[in-house]
Nucleic acid binder design. Structure first.
Length: 575
RNA sequence: CUCUCGGUAGCUCAGCUGGUAGAGCAAUUGACUCUUAAUCAAUGGGUCACAGGUUCGAAUCCUGUCCGGGAGACCA
């Protein structure tokens, strides 16, 4: 007997055995063919019709109401829930009532997956239900499912513990239907984007995740090692430089949904792995890209909700094109009253001090402007706004502005006070690009540990000539957060990163390890129940106290096993 | 990494200023042929996250550790 299982888990394991004893396989191998889904029936079954007279469907038991010889069961499939009406004499037409009395009533539990056939009807209370003719166990659940009940729009005992939800997302998905909806919408967003891009002739591509130079962004990478080549490799922090190589290679429009990895802090908008859509289009500039972005986001909103207004928190975000545009210097002027557009590094540092922002000597002009914007402006932009024309120092991959010296042709799209997209007219002058990289190296020497590495192969590609190109990166996770009204990135990732649970050691120690120490097999479960996880812990115990505890447990649990003598216990505790 | 709040039955939670744990749902047994948070009766279920300490006595007080949330720091 496995004492470490909870009472309910033990009951279910016993039921499992009883099913086997009755000749019923609780985990049958063969297909179970269905011809309907719950939601299909609920939407199509008209009150006065005789459709769906022979349906077959399958799902998980979510709740049961047993009234003697008749019962109501709610099952849930991938599409929704429906009520079953199960009558003893209908599923057991003869004298043999075991299927109902024993299998259904006693051996089936909430959480089990069953298949049923029957006909659809309306109950006296007017609920569309299935009158079951046949019932089959498809998968026995041996772990009790948290029970969430609902009535008149109110939910009772919903599991809200974030740790539970994120670690056991499979349970979260079963019991919280709204969670499923978020992820369905996530896929919809991705599909709408694909269609939007493909319909314009874009080509979806794959580029390396393992890179020997982590380029295209400034962030600390995850590092790993390739044994055969004996070189370090990095998980990509961006795929930008590879997509641009493909533009050099002659593709006019490429895109990739790129899983990127950054070895940095985690919070409600950062997960170590996340998804960015990047796309690059030859012969276009950042103005064109702003229009594309507006069109795309508007399409997503309309595709999900049929309108451009999307609720988020206590506000509504309008994705109706066009979006506002403001230069980063104007934004800073607007929110601080200070015109920094003509300032050099020293003057900027003074401004930052005046505004009580912390600076240090590793920060160049670009970082200081970034700091001012990030601290004083960013959070003001709730409605979609393009922040444009950044200083050249903070944009090493961006083309110099066609008419404004010291600036580059870049925009970031801010929504709800957060950056959603980052785009530029791409720098395609190889000489300029080399100089920009070299400036990055200087920053690194000054102590900026996130300045970019030089990718010489990328420079070589540019030297062959890259057409004028517009490029963008859009944070898909954050976009999905906006589109599904979720405050945390963890709620739009199926399996957000978590510290591992520490339970492994309990499972690694087998009963044999205890037996090897001279402990009788029948006492091993008791020892575990008493809290000893390893034989070493038993060895270290006080024999008198151990004997007392074990004998106490034996009595408490009414175990019919031979009692222990002190000498025996003393023997375990010695080597 | 810092501050802060939390971890009690399968789930949701109560447990006050220390006296060895309670409720609802779930479970078990029984009753019940249209219920729907089904109902009624009885029953069982807990290393109070973990490890120390203070105390005659700790879920409760103190210290440390682990895990999580929130806010910051770092970072797009």
């Amino acid at each position: 007997m496995a004492l470490e299982l909870s009472e309910q888990e033990q009951f279910r394991r016993n039921s499992l055995q009883e099913l086997f004893n009755l000749g019923i396989n609780p985990y049958p191998a063969e297909s179970y063919l269905i011809n309907a889904t719950t939601s299909e029936i609920l939407t199509n079954f008209p009150a006065d019709n005789t459709r769906y007279q022979e349906v077959s469907l399958a799902g998980r038991i979510m709740t049961r109401r047993i009234m003697g010889a008749a019962s109501f069961v709610d099952i849930q499939d991938s599409a929704g829930r429906i009520q079953l009406y199960i009558k003893r004499d209908d599923i057991c037409p003869g004298d043999e009532k075991t299927l109902y009395n024993t299998v259904f009533k006693r051996l089936m539990d909430i959480g089990d997956i069953i298949g049923v056939t029957g006909f659809v009807f309306n109950t006296q209370m007017g609920e569309i239900s299935i009158h079951v003719k046949e019932l089959k166990m498809l998968s026995k659940s041996v772990k009790p499912l948290p029970i969430v009940k609902e009535a008149e729009g109110q939910t009772f005992d919903a599991v809200t513990d974030p740790e539970f939800k994120y670690r056991q997302r499979y349970v979260d998905l079963i019991i919280n239907p709204a969670v499923k909806d978020v992820f369905v919408k996530r896929t919809k967003v991705v599909n709408i984007i694909r269609e939007f891009l493909n319909s314009q002739g874009a080509l979806e591509v794959d580029t390396p995740v393992l890179q020997s130079i982590p380029g295209g962004a400034t962030a600390r990478p995850f590092i790993t090692h390739h044994n055969a080549l004996d070189i370090p490799l990095y998980l990509r922090i961006a795929n930008e430089l590879y997509l641009k190589r493909l533009i050099v290679g002659g593709f006019d429009w490429v895109y990739e949904f790129s899983r990127d990895f950054r070895n940095e802090g985690m919070d409600r908008t950062h997960n170590p792995e996340f998804t960015i859509l990047e796309f690059y289009v030859a012969y276009r500039d950042y103005f064109w890209m702003m229009e594309q972005t507006e069109q795309m986001l508007q399409k997503i909103a309309v595709g999900l909700y049929g309108k451009t207004d999307v609720p988020f928190g206590d506000t509504t975000i309008s994705f109706k094109a066009p979006f506002n545009r403001i230069s980063i210097y104007d934004a800073i002027k607007e929110h601080t009253g200070i015109d920094v557009s003509a300032m050099d590094e020293a003057q900027l540092r003074i401004v930052c001090r005046q505004l009580e922002l912390e600076t240090d000597n590793t920060m160049g002009k670009g970082k200081l402007v970034d700091l001012l914007f990030g601290e004083k402006c960013e959070h003001h932009y709730i409605q979609p706004t393009f922040i444009i024309d950044y200083p050249v120092e903070m944009s090493p991959l961006t083309k110099k502005h066609r008419s404004k010296p010291g600036l580059v042709e870049r925009f970031e799209l801010m929504i709800n006070g957060k950056e959603i997209a980052n785009a530029y007219s791409e720098l395609n002058d190889p000489i300029d690009q080399r100089e920009r990289f070299e400036y990055q190296v200087k920053l690194m020497e000054r102590g900026d540990n996130e300045a970019m590495f030089i990718d010489y192969d990328f420079l070589r590609a540019l030297e062959y000539g890259m057409p004028p190109t517009a490029g963008i990166g859009i944070g898909i996770d954050r976009l999905v957060m906006l589109m599904t009204n979720q405050a945390s990135i963890q709620d739009v990732l199926f399996f957000p990163q978590m510290r591992p649970e520490k339970k492994a050691i309990v499972n690694l120690v087998t009963d044999d390890d205890f037996i090897a120490q001279g402990i009788p097999a029948e006492w091993v479960p008791v020892i575990r129940k008493a809290g000893f996880k390893t034989p070493e812990e038993v060895k270290a115990a006080n024999p008198n106290k151990l004997l007392n505890d074990l004998s106490g447990l034996r009595k408490k649990l009414k175990l019919e096993i031979t009692s222990l003598k002190l000498e025996e216990v003393q023997a375990w505790c010695k080597d």
